[in-house]
């Protein structure tokens, strides 16, 4: 027992992940984000997200690892609509990891909050614990109308009924980038070599992705911006997704 508590103490220590090679981080500049939804489709295409149909959507069983939340402020005619792309925050102190009875979700050395599908038994506890509500449960085994299945990405598992799933920061792309780095006899992946599907598609360049351990990476610079904050920061989940506040002051 003592051993487990020691371990927890160790990895909740601030800066624990800095000793590893990477700390994958995403920054989302809300001043650039237009809320257009290109990232949502990019994610669906890349990660084999099912087409659930109107009925399932109505039952709130949509499977969108990345969604855009909208919040209104003010009253007509002085209204504002703010957009917030919400995806798995890959928390360093993830509330979803501790309750899993089979350790199907855990934090790896790259700072990723991983979800191992074949290990998951579908208790859905993690989804209850997640304050960002970004975990999605497969209530059914979804199928694709022939020949739409020809589009499925062979680098990503097609999930089955009874499995929890969520944003992986496109771990398959990280894997490919590492593979390429090894081919080129490089120790590390260069900044900009990994771009998750959503970041790649973003037309206003609101999203950046990279390694926080590299002080010169684009994303490191973004996190040092004065506008940088975490959503629901007071929960102390230490997310790996950094948001940059929308600028509201103008002359």
């Amino acid at each position: 027992m003592a051993k487990i508590t020691d371990k927890i103490k160790e990895y909740t220590r601030p800066g624990y992940y800095e000793k590893f090679d990477y700390h994958w981080t995403m920054s989302i500049d809300l001043d650039r984000c237009t809320g257009c939804g290109a990232c949502v489709v990019a994610c669906q295409a890349e990660n084999n997200l099912p087409i659930v149909g109107e009925k399932r959507f109505k039952e709130r069983r949509e499977m969108k690892w990345l969604r855009i939340e909208r919040y209104w402020e003010g009253e007509y005619p002085n209204l504002k609509l703010k957009f917030l792309p919400m995806l798995c925050q890959q928390c360093d102190q993830a509330p979803c990891e501790t309750p899993c009875p089979v350790a199907a979700t855990y934090h790896n050395q790259d700072g990723l909050n991983t979800q191992i599908y074949n290990r998951c038994i579908g208790t859905r506890t993690c989804a209850v614990y997640c304050p960002y509500e970004v975990r999605y449960f497969n209530w059914f085994t979804y199928t694709w109308d022939e020949p739409l299945e020809q589009q499925l990405n062979p680098d990503v598992t097609v999930r089955e009924k009874g499995v929890m799933e969520k944003c992986t920061f496109c771990v398959q792309r990280i894997r490919m980038a590492k593979d390429k780095a090894k081919d080129d006899n490089r120790r590390r992946v260069k900044d900009g070599e990994v771009t998750p599907a959503c970041v790649q598609s973003c037309a206003s360049e609101a999203m950046q992705f990279g390694d926080l351990n590299d002080p010169n990476s684009k994303v490191s610079k973004m996190t040092k911006n004065k506008r940088a904050y975490h959503v629901l920061e007071e929960l102390n989940t230490k997310p790996s997704v950094v948001y940059l506040q929308k600028v509201e002051k103008h002359d």
């Binding site: 257009c36 290109a38 489709v41 990019a42 020949p147 739409l148 020809q150 589009q151």
Partner: peptide, 14 residues
Amino acid sequence: RLCSMGQAGLNALY
């Protein structure tokens, strides 16, 4: 970069 409609071109193909 590409918008959602452009990316959904695969849905037209398949």
